[in-house]
Amino acid sequence: MTPDPLDTILERSAPATRAADAGDLRAMMDAARTEARPRRHRRVGIVSGALALALAGGASFAAASSSWDWNAGMNPNRSHTYTSPTWGECELRVGNIVAANPLRQFELDRAIDDWFATADVAAEVEPYIAGHLAVLEGDQSDATDPRSADAYYWVAVDEALGDAMSAGLSERGFDNASISTGSGQVHCEGEQWE
């Protein structure tokens, strides 16, 4: 086979290369995952859609009664209290948070417990609420259900708590990719879901 003179010239003109360092590649991939992963804002659209269905007369979210029980895994030490527009004092509990890597579950639980124990949760959550509330109210501005204000505020606080906790966990070595699932539950003094 006859060598192509252009290939020969290109091979001689190529800069010297070295093998990539595995540690550098791993750091680049981790950085790309962190930057490319969107923040938890995807849930807002899903939750606001569910709220629209519920407020339009669909299935109710929870039964309101004085004997209302918390779901399993809702830890009272992982809670945030706030005042709802008309339903009064509310408690939002976080639970069933599962690490993406099962080997880090104990470490994640300790980090979450540490954040709730040491952070001023109300102060951490507050800056995020208005942004989430604006999105929810913008999506559902035509809602006439009297429960809308309370339901929107609950979802905004829930999302804000998730954002604040995410920032706190990031400082403790857990990014959004470290958590696969989690849930929350709210109970207010004067809630009216039906």
Rank of each mutant, 00 (worst) to 15 (best):
V44S: 06
A167C: 14
R37K: 12
Y82M: 07
E194S: 14
N96Q: 08
L6C: 04
R33T: 06
R39H: 07
R43P: 01
T17E: 15
R104E: 12
R147K: 08
V44C: 06
L55P: 03
A50G: 10
G58L: 03
R110Q: 13
R104F: 03
A64M: 02
S170M: 08
A99H: 03
I9N: 09
L55K: 01
T8P: 01
H80M: 10
Q192D: 15
I112W: 00
H41K: 13
R43F: 12
S183W: 03
R93H: 10
V47T: 02
S13C: 08
L103N: 10
L55T: 05
G58K: 09
E107P: 02
E89T: 15
D21H: 13
R42I: 14
L25D: 15
A32P: 05
L133N: 05
R26P: 08
V94W: 00
E124G: 09
E126C: 00
N71Y: 07
G168S: 10
R93T: 08
E35R: 14
G73R: 05
V94C: 04
D21S: 15
D150K: 07
S60G: 13
A100G: 09
T2G: 10
P15G: 03
G73N: 02
G173W: 09
R147Y: 02
P5T: 13
T181V: 09
A134M: 11
F174C: 10
H187P: 01
P85S: 08
A32K: 11
E137L: 05
H132C: 09
V186Q: 00
R147A: 07
N176C: 04
S67C: 07
A177T: 15
Q140S: 12
L92K: 00
E189P: 04
E107C: 02
R172M: 02
I97T: 02
A151W: 08
E137R: 14
H80E: 07
E35N: 09
Q185D: 11
A31S: 15
T83G: 05
C90Y: 01
S48V: 12
E171M: 04
A123P: 05
P127T: 13
S148F: 13
A56Q: 13
V135M: 05
G162K: 00
A164H: 00
A111F: 06
V121K: 05
A52L: 08
D113Y: 01
A149M: 10
Y153I: 04
P76Y: 08
T86P: 04
A122Y: 01
P3Y: 02
